[in-house]
Design a protein around this nucleic acid. Structure first.
Lengths: 109, 109
DNA sequence: AAAACATTTCGTAATTTTGCGAAACATAAA
DNA sequence: TTTATGTTTCGCAAAATTACGAAATGTTTT
């Protein structure tokens, strides 16, 4: 029998985790989430030890992952948490980490 | 003024996320956690589309991250969730995703 | 139109991750 | 002691990630 591939759920969780797997992206999300407000890349760059272009790449990744969104407000771009997706993500992760059933046996496929 | 480096907390969260950032590692954790029991690598290999040696690498990474532990029971090794660290991790991630304060302003450093 | 500003994209290099098969290890069975 | 079993380590290749500075983009001010 052929090997099963990964489930969509497994890929989805891994994708969320990948978005959080760099300290710069954790910083960005913490900042935007904790202040519950929008922020430009210029307001973030002073806080972290990376170049502007690198920050821009991380912002792009978080946008791609759907965790943040950017509103253009010339000549700046204001980034905010995508609240809808944030909530979805929160639920997925909470579900993943929820307490286990009681069971002391071994692996049963 | 010099650029601040990332905080220990940011690095810790990123580290946890990195451990979860591959579908094979998500599968391993889901399996061990949902059954709340131990399992050998041989009992896992049939479920996922990777080679044995690759699975072994992923198990090693999760062990390094502290999320699982392996008991040697010759000729097998039984892997289980490291419950203590799992709980710590759960709290860290829950804290990260907790609801925000209300605040509609913009970025205030 | 030119200069200034905020940010992104491009090109590229260094590092890390992922993957595999072959070989190695350790234990148990014959 | 040989053979079989379950798993990991090694060696290597391919792909992805991270990083930077330079150049490009788009907007406002002069």
């Amino acid at each position: 029998m052929p090997k099963p591939s990964f489930t969509e759920q497994q890929k989805q969780i891994a994708g969320i985790a990948k978005a959080l797997s760099h300290p710069a992206r954790v910083y960005i999300l913490q900042k935007l989430h904790s202040m519950n407000a929008c922020c430009t890349s210029g307001e973030m760059i002073g806080d972290i030890p990376i170049a502007r272009s690198t920050l821009s790449q991380h912002l792009k990744e978080l946008k791609y992952a759907g965790l943040i969104q950017g509103e253009i407000e010339p000549p700046m771009i204001k980034y905010c948490i995508n609240k809808e997706n944030w909530e979805i993500t929160r639920k997925i992760i909470n579900e993943f980490f929820k307490p286990a059933q009681q069971n002391t046996g071994d692996c049963k496929p």
